[in-house]
Structures are given as structure tokens and as C-alpha cells.
């Protein structure tokens, strides 16, 4: 049980940190309650983590998240944190429930119209380009370093240009997303298409398989883990692109628009509600791609061991 020593250490560190943060405040009772809550829930989490339960695997993070939310709520309540700095979670939840209409419209505008259409076009274009690049070795040697270079650049900066070209509506957001997702998917797909070993390719040629046969039966399936890696990176990038592009101009609907105007009105509960939507959309989007990956690459060791 040497591990418990570290747990006690982290517990003490957490307590000290909180004590330092609140040492300036006058509300001693509130501080004591918050610290007590933290201690009890952390202790429960320690017990849970060492219990060896099967359910602890998902219960522990849920409990941790709930602990944070509770501490947040208590802090706001006891210290009268003004709304313009940090709204309480209960307030955010209330705002979320009240304005599902607006949130849904923003979701449709930004995620479905801007993000998803750009994601599909960008990933599709990258996939086709990757096949072309893979076919011609000269292109591969030339385009791959350029693509690698582009994948590291702050492509979000193209947003003002594309907004200027394609107008304020969702088309310009889709264009930003296309540019953002293109290079990561391209680089990963090209890397994946080179994944097969010489032995496997030789086997295909002993079967007298032509290019497309060996492509669909051997190299594309072998590339799938890499392709999905790129697709998963691209999900986050797509949302980032769609939201940030709206900071450069948008119709009066959309998540980025709502966030920037609500921040201007100091309506932070609305901003947090949009952030909740973005978080849910982001995880759901990622989750769908991850599920598709599981279905397609069930044979791969990284999927089998789970």
C-alpha cells in the first residue's frame, strides 16, 4: 500500500492549494464547508479507486467531476462570486434548459451546417488526394513534407480571408473547416497507405492482383487505423474552425457569434451554456468516429485488447 502515501500527499496538496486561494476571504464557515466536502469526496474516491470494483472504472471519473461541480457551486454560493466572473453550475443548467431553442439553432448553424459539411468535404478531398499522392512517388516525396509543414501551422488564421471570400454565412465556416482538416487527414492517410509490408504486397502480386484489387483488399484496410487517427484529430479541428471563423463575421446565429456577443453583454451563463453544447457536440462527434473505427478496424491489436 505504498500508493496511499501519494494519495495522502495529493490530498494535502489539494487542501493547501484551496486554503491558499481562499485565505484572503472572510467567510471562514464557507471555507471550512468547502474543504470538508473536498476531503470527504476525495476520500470516497480513494476508497473507490482501491476497492477493485469493476464499476469503479467509470464511477471514479464521474465522482471526480461531480466533486468539482459541487465545489464550484459551493464556492460561488459562499463567496458571492458575481455572475460576470463565474456563474454557478445550477445557473448554467437553468440557462441551458431555458434556451434550448437558441442553442439548437446555434448548434445546427455552426456544427451541422458549418462543421459537418466542411468535415465531410475536407476529409473526402484529403482522402482522394492521398490516393493520388500514394500512386506517384514523386508527388509523395514532394507533397508530404509540405503537408506535414502545413499541418503544424495556425491555419485558423485563414478564417478572415475565407469569410471575406465566401460571405458571412455557413459556407465560409465550412471552407475554414475544409482547410483545417485537410492536411492532418492527408498526412495520416498517406502514412497509412504505406503501412503494408513487402511480404504482403508480394503475396498480392503472386495472386496477379491489379493495383485497385490490392488497394481495396490489402492496402486500404491496412491503412484504416491511420486514417481514423487523422479523422479523430480532424473532429476537434472542425469544431474549432467552425467556431473561431464566426468571430470574424457571421449571421446573427451560431455558437461563435453567441459566445462573442454574450461575452460582450456579460451574460456568462449563456456563454457557459454554449460551451456545454460545444463540449457535448465535440465528445459526441469524436465518439461517433471512434465507434466507426471500432467497427472497421476490429482486427487491429489496439482494438482487440480491450
Amino acid at each position: 500500500m505504498t500508493l496511499t502515501r501519494y494519495n495522502i500527499a495529493t490530498l494535502i496538496a489539494g487542501l493547501l492549494g484551496l486554503a491558499v486561494i481562499f485565505s484572503a476571504g472572510e467567510n471562514k464557515l464557507g471555507l471550512a464547508t468547502i474543504l470538508l466536502c473536498w476531503a470527504i469526496l476525495w476520500f470516497a474516491n480513494v476508497k473507490l479507486a482501491h476497492s477493485g470494483w469493476k464499476q469503479a472504472k467509470w464511477l471514479a471519473p464521474v465522482l471526480f467531476g461531480a466533486t468539482l461541480l459541487l465545489l464550484w457551486e459551493l464556492t460561488v454560493a459562499f463567496f458571492d462570486v458575481p455572475l460576470v466572473i463565474l456563474p454557478a453550475p445550477s445557473l448554467i443548467a437553468a440557462r441551458f434548459v431555458q434556451s434550448t431553442d437558441i442553442l439548437w439553432q446555434d448548434f445546427v448553424q455552426t456544427i451541422l451546417k458549418g462543421g459537418l459539411s466542411g468535415y465531410i468535404i475536407g476529409c473526402g478531398a484529403a482522402f482522394l488526394t492521398a490516393i493520388l499522392v500514394d500512386r506517384f512517388d514523386f508527388l509523395r516525396r514532394g507533397l508530404l513534407p509540405v503537408g506535414n509543414f502545413m499541418a503544424a501551422l495556425p491555419i485558423v488564421g485563414t478564417a478572415p480571408i475565407l469569410v471575406m471570400w465566401y460571405g458571412f454565412n455557413w459556407q465560409s465556416k465550412a471552407a475554414v473547416v475544409v482547410v483545417m482538416v485537410f492536411f492532418p487527414v492527408l498526412v495520416n492517410t498517406v502514412a497509412g497507405l504505406r503501412e503494408t509490408s513487402a511480404m504482403q504486397r508480394d503475396l498480392m502480386s503472386t495472386y496477379a492482383a491489379n493495383y485497385w484489387q490490392s488497394f481495396f483488399k490489402l492496402r486500404l484496410p491496412a491503412a484504416m487505423p491511420f486514417i481514423f487517427n487523422g479523422l479523430k484529430i480532424a473532429t476537434t479541428l472542425a469544431l474549432v474552425g467552425a467556431i473561431v471563423a464566426e468571430f470574424f463575421g457571421s449571421p446573427t446565429v451560431g455558437m461563435g457569434f453567441r459566445i462573442s456577443t454574450s461575452v460582450g453583454q456579460l451574460a456568462l451563463d449563456m456563454v457557459w451554456a454554449e460551451i456545454v453544447v460545444a463540449a457535448l457536440a465535440g465528445s459526441a462527434f469524436y465518439g461517433v468516429v471512434a465507434m466507426a473505427e471500432k467497427a472497421v478496424t476490429f482486427w487491429h491489436p489496439s482494438q482487440r485488447e480491450k
Binding site: 495529493t10 471514479a60 471519473p61 476537434t236 469544431l239 456563454v271 454554449e274 460545444a278 465535440g282 465528445s283
Partner: peptide
């Protein structure tokens, strides 16, 4: 072990979220 079980899933999930939406706030 506790931090691994309770914090790590959140660190992974947070990578799928467009954190940049928080920037203006």
C-alpha cells in the same frame, strides 16, 4: 491510482472539446 482513475478520463475527453470556445470568456 486515484488520480489516474478520476482525472485521466477527463484529460482525454477534454481533447475532443473545442476548448478555444472558452477564449473570449
Amino acid at each position: 491510482r486515484v488520480m489516474d482513475m478520476s482525472v485521466m478520463p477527463w484529460a482525454i475527453v477534454s481533447q475532443t472539446i473545442p476548448i478555444i470556445a472558452l477564449a473570449p470568456m
